[in-house]
Design a protein around this nucleic acid. Sequence first.
DNA 1: AAAACCTGCAACCGCAGGCAC
DNA 2: AGTGCCTGCGGTTGCAGGTTT
Length: 268
Amino acid sequence: MEAYGAANSNNKRRFTKCPWGREEDDILTAHVKTHGVGNWNYIADHIPGRTGCGFFLSFTGQSCRLRWFNQLDPKIDKSPFSEEEQQKLLQLQREYGNRWSTIVRFFPGRTDNQIKNQYHVLAGSQYTKASSPSSSITEPVGTPLNGGYIDLSWYRSTVSSFEVGSQFSNNSTGVAPHLADRIGTPLFSGGPSSVNAETWLAARSFNSFDCMSLGNVYGHLGASRGDFMMLDGNSAKISESCPVALPTQGADGGDLQFIDFLGVGTSE
DNA sequence: AAAACCTGCAACCGCAGGCAC
DNA sequence: AGTGCCTGCGGTTGCAGGTTT
């Protein structure tokens, strides 16, 4: 959808955000009061295109709908989440998974976007708390971990995404051969809230030769984008390279292990 | 004081389902 | 039955502002 512009050849930058202005909000609110909720494309057609993003940009019905339901609707409760709400959210997420539209029904005045964002915040911090349901978490926040081992339960709550080591794709010291054809393949994204990743990690036992680069790790891990994570039983080691003993590659490569986080198979 | 880093959240994307024609 | 439009949903990303170094 190039209307949102700014996608470049390597897809690193997919769009440029263009915040709504006060005047635009007023126009949208007036239209909703006049025409009611719905008919978003009609409403979008009657709001002047927005400027100020470096280029002219037309509103879309989808954009108007999101703006209204997530920000402008007077019924929205914009106060910070209480401790009680946070606990309720965590409990409901365990029960319903990432079905935010279902969960939001338990929070009158909140939006699904609020719920989703709040859960991401909670999921990113809960494992660092003493009240965490996991008793195996021993790594204190702030400890430099580069080169040290970390507990995977802690890791699960901290890593937001990673992929096979593209950082070393042109480097002979890089990726294990059994993963070489998967360079750049996202193994998991979506943050700690990802049910798939959580389920996968909980269910899978790791082989000592599993070695992959981290895509995006919080700074207090002591690791950074492109660093490797070597999986070893129930622990993982962060390293700048991948010096583990590598398994013998099969003749056709077809029997080699593929770490399929999302359960989508091995197709490219 | 400045730079780097981190956090929270608004806004976008892509897809799927429902509905009218 | 097929098509296209509209709406809703969940995942993802960009960025402002706060915090740390």
